[in-house]
């Protein structure tokens, strides 16, 4: 068998530097996506014109591939908007954020709907403000109910950042292409890349389990 890691080993630090890029995109998208997704979920939870418009928006981002969305923003829009020339990072941050906002808003919406209305009524009867109801009741109870789905979404996000390679963001997969192209050692490089991705997602899922255990007041 033609396997030889000796030419890949010096390139491992280069591949590992991609972790920082991957995680930066994932983290920014997770943060912005969470805030944006939460606001969207609050609006789409209620009936109303804005809610319906936002739902269409969410539906579009869930109904088209991320690959398409990146291309559309990065290569499509500059053609019709004069002077709009986003950098690869700019496009990645925007599209990954909006895309995860769309998925997260649906998860949050399910979380809000999972809360028994009686508890919100009790809070209203006690004259508790809407802000305190959201932060003190809806978020903590909803978070417990949907945490596994949120962690799942973050794991998906980490994996999907690999798509950013197509608009030449210098993340792990793009670095692999470069390494494989210069060393002609694709298999060895891919083994390393696979291990990196698996380590990242596994770490996140273990962290998620720990947080979940902390949030499960019903198991105390």
């Amino acid at each position: 068998m033609n396997i030889d890691f000796t030419r890949i080993i010096p390139r491992i630090p280069y591949l590992l530097q991609g972790v920082q890029v991957t995680l930066t995109i994932a983290l920014v998208a997770a943060l912005i996506g969470s805030v944006l997704g939460f606001i969207i979920s609050l609006i789409t939870s209620k009936k109303g014109l804005l809610g319906r418009v936002l739902f269409l928006f969410v539906d579009f981002f869930r109904g088209t591939p991320l690959y398409f969305q990146l291309f559309f923003y990065h290569y499509g829009l500059p053609q019709v908007i004069p002077g709009f020339l986003p950098t690869a990072y700019h496009s990645a941050f925007v599209i990954f954020s909006i895309n995860s906002a769309a998925y997260l808003s649906e998860i949050f919406r399910a979380g809000i709907q999972s809360i028994d209305k009686g508890q919100i009524e009790a809070a209203k009867a006690l004259n508790i403000s809407t802000w305190d109801i959201v932060t003190g009741i809806i978020i903590p109870i909803g978070a417990k109910n949907v945490l596994p789905a949120i962690i799942n979404e973050f794991i998906t996000l980490i994996k999907e950042t690999s798509v950013a390679a197509v608009i030449s963001v210098n993340e792990i997969m793009r670095r692999h292409t470069i390494v494989a192209g210069t060393t002609f050692r694709a298999f060895e490089s891919l083994i390393i890349v696979g291990l990196i991705y698996y380590t990242l997602t596994k770490t996140l899922s273990i962290a998620g389990k720990v947080v979940e255990r902390k949030l499960r007041y019903d198991l105390r």
Binding site: D116, G118, Q119, E121, A122, I137, I141, K144
Partner: peptide, 9 residues
């Protein structure tokens, strides 16, 4: 309330 509606958390 009939169903108590305590904050479950």
């Amino acid at each position: 309330f009939q169903n108590f509606n305590l904050f479950e958390h």
